[in-house]
Design a protein around this nucleic acid. Structure first.
Length: 311
DNA sequence: GCTTGTTTATCTTATG
DNA sequence: CATAAGATAAACAAGC
């Protein structure tokens, strides 16, 4: 009955929102940023469903890019031919899908007006974008086995040339600036953004989770597997951790439940990188990795109850 | 003229 | 059931 060739998966809309699809695409790229056309391509390559009605969904997707603050536009440098800008994930968007659902986020990521302006008009974007090139070379590709197990891009440099005391754990800065941060700027540009432009694997969870969590993202082969859902998620039986950080010491396997409540409003608007991030760090990334995956494997927006996994 | 972006409006749907 | 997030439509500007 269920013949995976025709009417089975292809017809069904993948259990991902445009936001997650886009995030997926972006994260799958080496530079963590993609021009619109490539985002389209990515989605179409992996989800047969989106090979039709392109006009419709692409319009929606574009709307999402503009409308959602979690996506930032990075202008092309003059030496980089092509249409449109690059799109990246706002470093602060953090674990947008912390609840395990890629259909709907717990809360929409919205910047404040001030941040908006600064972020969008920052002339520094070009600069950082430029820097990015050289940097990434030194760092190696995310796939480079030689590097670190989990989040390779992190090792070699840090935002200010690495003088900041050495290597920053993936959960340091990004998480730090993540979620709670709402006003940390560096010359009009969110510090987090800067990092991002420099090649940091932005939204922690996403970047790390994505690769192992979204099959299609990882395998960029031409033989795009049918669809995300169910059966094709074989590899998910495996505990996330072991999948990408064999060393086993990357993630602080903190058994954090689900985020309590986004009500932490006591964040000191410090202009530096220092912050009260304890809570932040503890609140989700690892939790997501540890518990969410299995559910995601289920594909459907159905199995989205972290609680189930906990029991 | 097409692609890329932005914005507004409305409808749908997941969640609390 | 109310609300907020997401989807879809559509108008329109800018750039190539």
């Amino acid at each position: 009955m269920p013949r995976p060739g025709k009417n089975s998966y292809s017809d069904q809309k993948p259990p991902y929102s445009y936001i997650s699809l886009t995030a997926m695409a972006i994260q799958s790229s080496q530079e963590k940023m993609l021009p619109l056309s490539d985002i389209y391509k990515f989605i179409m390559d992996r989800f047969p469903y989106y090979r039709e009605n392109t006009q419709r969904w692409q319009n929606s997707l574009r709307h999402n890019l503009s409308f959602n603050d979690c996506f930032i536009k990075i202008p092309r440098r003059p030496d980089q031919p092509g249409k449109g800008s690059f799109w990246a994930l706002h470093p602060d968007c953090g674990d947008m899908f912390e609840n395990g659902s890629f259909l709907r986020r717990r809360k929409r990521f919205k910047l404040m007006r001030s941040e908006h302006v600064a972020c969008k008009n920052s002339p520094m974007l070009h600069y950082f974008h430029h820097q990015h090139h050289q940097t990434k070379l030194a760092i190696g590709t995310p796939e480079t086995p030689g590097s670190v197990g989990r989040l390779p891009q992190f090792q070699t440099y840090s935002i200010n040339g690495g003088q900041s005391g050495g290597f920053k754990h993936p959960f340091a800065i990004e998480n730090i600036i993540g979620r709670d941060y709402k006003g940390m700027m560096t010359g009009g540009l969110p510090i987090a953004s800067v990092m991002h432009h420099l090649g940091y694997p932005v939204p922690t969870q996403l970047s790390s989770v994505v690769n192992s969590m979204w099959p299609h993202v990882g395998m960029l082969s031409d033989s795009m597997s049918p669809v995300p859902v169910s059966s094709d998620y074989g590899p998910f039986g495996v505990p996330m951790k072991s999948l990408y950080h064999p060393s086993g010491q990357t993630m602080p396997a903190v058994p954090v439940p689900i985020k309590p409540t986004p009500g932490l409003g006591q964040v000191p608007a410090l202009p530096g990188l220092t912050h009260s991030h304890a809570q932040i760090c503890a609140s989700s990334p690892s939790a997501l990795l540890e518990k969410t995956l299995p559910e995601l494997a289920e594909g459907k927006g159905a199995a989205l109850h972290p609680a189930l996994l906990l029991s």
